[in-house]
Simulated assay, not measured.
Amino acid sequence: MFAANQQDKPRLTSLSHGGGCGCKIAPGVLANLLKTAIPFAVPSELLVGTETADDAAVYQINDHQALIATTDFFMPIVDNPRHFGQIAATNAISDIYAMGGTPLMALAIVGMPINVLPHEDIAEILDGGREICAKAGIPVAGGHSIDSVEPIYGLAVIGIIDPKNLKKNATAKAGDVLVLGKPLGVGIYSAALKKEKLDLSGYEQMIANTTKLNTPGKKLAAITGVHAMTDVTGFGLLGHALEICKGSNVQGQINYADLKILPGVKELAQQGFITGASNRNWASYGADIELSTDLTPVDQAILTDPQTSGGLLVACDPAVLGEVLEIFAEEDFGDAAVIGQLSPQAEGRSFLRVI
């Protein structure tokens, strides 16, 4: 099985209680925490705030420009420090693409156990982040660092968009089809890696998937028939699809057989390599999910698996589906596929059915 050559150095993943987007606070717990938020007057220029748990905040500055602001950071999902930096940076920048925007610059968020982790490893983490920012065409223009018990790295990212092209997670329409840009299973890979049970092929698949920038988002934003977008991260496919349904007042159906799943993930899940976040996710939103009786606990684990730097989830008119898939193909997202559809809300309730 694959294990990074750490010699006498501590494994990055051994220094944290969780990793990647699996570190997220469970959606149900987060909702309760935010219930007591102090209300404030929302300026009309704030086009996207906290109302629908969207991927980023958006503030309009004139008729043709709006700023997109987001932040994302987490603890190590892998032991290789450069890969950790690359994954965290890719994940943070994804929020800009998920809104349909173009990233402009980033600020680094750094918390490291400075007397435990070798300084050269910390430098590697930062270099990995800068490499991905360079691929996205943006600078790391600053940041902030602290000495922390667990290693933490991520970015605050600023982007820009023409407001008419803005894609929210709450503007889908009944009749839309759902397209997912990347295969599932990163969380299960990470659970196996932490136990040193992920082989080299699986690790390579994991790195390729988590360091692939969601660049199709910029082009998809210009298509009028693309109604909503989000990226699938810590709440798993079901959690983020349910956010689209609830925000858009529709109900959805996911066709399990149409999902693309990373190689070996089902077998690893059958062996018990499932993250704690997957179970927390189901506990938070399972009441709004109808699973076919044909689906197994392993299938449920894949559907709720926290994705780090996961794929774009797009709700679009069937009339523009060909154009959407063509853009994914042009940007080298060969696993992009139609995974379901949306329909009118039934009985005043938004829910998600998986068949």
Rank of each mutant, 00 (worst) to 15 (best):
58 V>W: 01
160 I>L: 15
179 V>G: 03
300 Q>G: 09
345 Q>F: 11
180 L>N: 03
177 V>S: 01
76 P>W: 08
14 S>K: 09
346 A>Q: 15
116 V>R: 02
273 F>I: 09
156 A>T: 06
300 Q>L: 03
78 V>L: 02
214 N>Y: 13
107 L>W: 04
275 T>V: 13
234 G>M: 14
98 A>F: 08
181 G>V: 14
138 I>R: 09
302 I>C: 03
222 A>H: 05
93 I>T: 04
159 G>S: 10
99 M>Y: 00
89 A>R: 07
14 S>Y: 13
304 T>L: 11
303 L>Q: 06
264 G>W: 10
78 V>T: 01
92 A>P: 03
42 V>S: 08
45 E>H: 15
62 N>A: 03
205 Q>W: 13
208 A>C: 02
338 V>Q: 07
238 L>S: 02
326 E>K: 13
275 T>A: 01
137 G>P: 08
163 P>Y: 14
46 L>W: 11
162 D>W: 09
38 I>M: 12
61 I>A: 09
320 V>T: 07
81 P>W: 12
213 L>I: 07
231 D>S: 15
85 G>I: 10
256 Y>W: 15
336 A>H: 01
245 C>N: 13
96 I>Y: 10
26 A>S: 14
91 N>D: 13
236 G>Y: 08
343 S>P: 00
263 P>K: 01
162 D>P: 06
344 P>K: 09
296 T>R: 02
246 K>E: 08
125 I>V: 11
276 G>M: 14
136 A>M: 08
338 V>A: 06
98 A>V: 15
180 L>R: 04
124 E>D: 10
301 A>W: 05
205 Q>K: 03
113 P>G: 09
63 D>S: 13
80 N>Y: 15
136 A>G: 07
32 N>F: 04
323 E>A: 15
145 S>I: 14
241 A>L: 09
188 I>E: 07
297 P>S: 00
244 I>P: 00
111 G>S: 02
171 T>F: 03
77 I>F: 03
287 A>L: 08
143 G>P: 04
241 A>Y: 05
11 R>W: 10
274 I>H: 02
173 K>M: 04
4 A>P: 04
14 S>M: 14
67 L>P: 05
153 Y>V: 11
17 H>N: 06
248 S>W: 07
161 I>N: 06
179 V>Y: 09
204 E>V: 02
209 N>D: 14
127 D>F: 12
145 S>P: 03
180 L>H: 10
65 Q>R: 13
230 T>L: 08
167 K>I: 00
81 P>M: 05
101 G>Y: 00
155 L>H: 00
30 L>S: 02
43 P>E: 07
312 L>V: 12
